[in-house]
């Protein structure tokens, strides 16, 4: 597994997963699920304004904000139900790995990054597709919003 072209935080997460057994990977994923921050007040009750991630089996909504300052830092907001901890875990990983990075770095994250976490054996390749969908939607929004600002 090569983590060389991942941003630092995501590379560290990838290394943690790589060092873990299949069983431990599920525990790690559960930690990310538990740690996914709630949507801030300004998005409460406004899920219809967020983008739904169709690739996920559970109803998952996300949006990104790009700071209007030279750093163009990205902030990620995801809503996923408690009954869908795998999906929440995927969102938690992306949040921990990408939130606060400059837009340019987020756009450079390879599309197949979710496949490099060793999650396919732990939760099945079919399920990991949901995370690939989440990442591609995040990048698309960052691209649009960074260009608009």
């Amino acid at each position: 597994m090569s983590a060389g072209d991942l941003p630092e935080a995501l590379a560290e997460i990838a290394a943690d997963f790589a060092a873990a057994t299949t069983r431990q990977r599920l525990d790690l994923l559960l930690e990310f699920s538990d740690e996914l921050p709630d949507l801030p007040e300004r998005y409460a009750g406004r899920l219809d304004e967020l983008e739904q991630v169709d690739e996920c089996q559970a109803p998952v909504f996300l949006t990104v904000e790009v700071e209007d300052s030279p750093g163009r830092r990205v902030h990620l907001f995801v809503d996923a139900p408690a009954e869908a901890p795998t999906t929440r875990g995927f969102a938690g990983i992306l949040h921990a790995g990408l939130d606060g990075l400059p837009a340019e770095e987020v756009l450079q994250v390879p599309d197949d990054a979710p496949m490099r976490l060793g999650l396919a054996e732990a939760v099945s390749p079919l399920r990991v597709r949901g995370m690939v969908g989440m990442l591609s939607r995040i990048k698309r929004q960052v691209r649009l919003k960074a260009a608009a600002g």
Partner: peptide, 22 residues
């Protein structure tokens, strides 16, 4: 379950998990 991790968030005491996919 459909969601493989749901069991880990809390399950009936003493129960084991069998995942359809894995």
């Amino acid at each position: 379950d459909e969601d493989v991790l749901l069991y880990d968030t809390g399950h009936i005491p003493g129960s084991v998990r069998i995942d359809w996919h894995l």
